[in-house]
């Protein structure tokens, strides 16, 4: 589909697109800017855009007062761990639903998705009690398992849609060409599914990284990830906007950087494979 676009129309479109993008990204930009301001200038009225005294003191203070790095490691372990654990369960599940569907496969998929519609607080108390009994409260392993379970329906759905895209004909062609199950998976299935698996992994790391209900409610110190780090910062230090901004920037920076470098995969992931 191609339409003639006049240079003026193009300029207007570009301008509009940039304005919308800036508007949406503004809170984040503002947070980042504020994080480099001295505390008094951070709350100055009228607000100062760029002409303030740039400083990294806030970052040093944040690291001194609360060990950022420990939260960061927890976030990494929990988000990557829960995603990998999820894959181990979701890959066989999605394979079987995509390639050997049963009479109830569709219902099963809908039911799994429906669990995502339920408010999480509804199961907070039972899960909290189970965690106390099992001694999982404030442990990385406990949180990893919970986040895996929370995101499992999405992982399975995404993988299922990717696997569905692989035409059964091609797998049959491989069988006709003399491939056994091992060769079929190794040389044909996996290479064709890798982009789908990669975007699933990326999206789920982000979802797990940003998850703040369970991470805040089920941790105190040892297993607390960056979400708990910001939350903990906002209450006692609530009025120190610059430090709070520095803490927030440090919490979102890793995931923003990762997202930036994997944009292409992510877009594919977010559209559930609809865009090729």
């Amino acid at each position: 589909m191609s339409r003639a676009i006049t240079p003026q129309a193009k300029a207007i479109n570009t301008g509009l697109a940039w304005s919308v993008a800036l508007l949406i990204a503004f809170p984040i930009l503002w947070t980042v800017l504020t994080s480099f301001k001295p505390e008094p200038q951070a709350v100055a009225s009228p607000p100062i855009f760029l002409g303030f005294d740039w400083t990294i003191q806030n970052y040093i203070d944040v690291q001194d007062q609360r060990a950022y790095f420990r939260y960061f490691v927890n976030s990494v372990v929990i988000s990557i761990g829960s995603t990998l654990l999820g894959l181990i369960i979701a890959i066989p599940a999605a394979w079987s639903m995509a390639f050997v569907p049963g009479a109830r496969t569709k219902d099963l998929l809908m039911w799994m998705l429906s669990t995502k519609m339920m408010p999480a607080v509804g199961v907070l108390v039972p899960i909290y009690l189970i965690f106390i009994r099992l001694g999982l409260l404030d442990t990385r392993i406990g949180l990893t398992v919970v986040l895996m379970l929370i995101n499992l329906p999405i992982i399975i759905w995404m993988l299922y849609t990717y696997f569905k895209e692989i035409p059964a004909d091609i797998l049959e062609a491989a069988r006709m060409d003399g491939a056994g199950l091992r060769e079929e998976i190794l040389y044909v299935l996996t290479p064709m599914a890798v982009p789908g698996i990669a975007s699933t992994v990326l999206l789920n790391i982000i979802l797990a990284w940003n998850e703040s209900f369970w991470t805040i409610n089920l941790t105190t110190v040892n297993a607390a990830p960056l979400t708990a780090f910001i939350a903990g910062f906002s209450s006692p230090q609530g009025l120190f906007y610059a430090k709070l901004s520095a803490a927030s920037t440090m919490a979102i920076a890793p995931i923003l950087i990762m997202g930036w470098f994997s944009q292409k995969q992510l877009v594919r992931g977010l559209t559930f494979g609809a865009v090729k």
């Binding site: 004909d169 091609i170 049959e172 062609a173 006709m176 060409d177 064709m192």
Partner: peptide
């Protein structure tokens, strides 16, 4: 050997 309607190339 089989030739498919959809070609089924890799």
């Amino acid at each position: 050997a089989m030739v498919f309607q959809s070609y089924a190339l890799y």
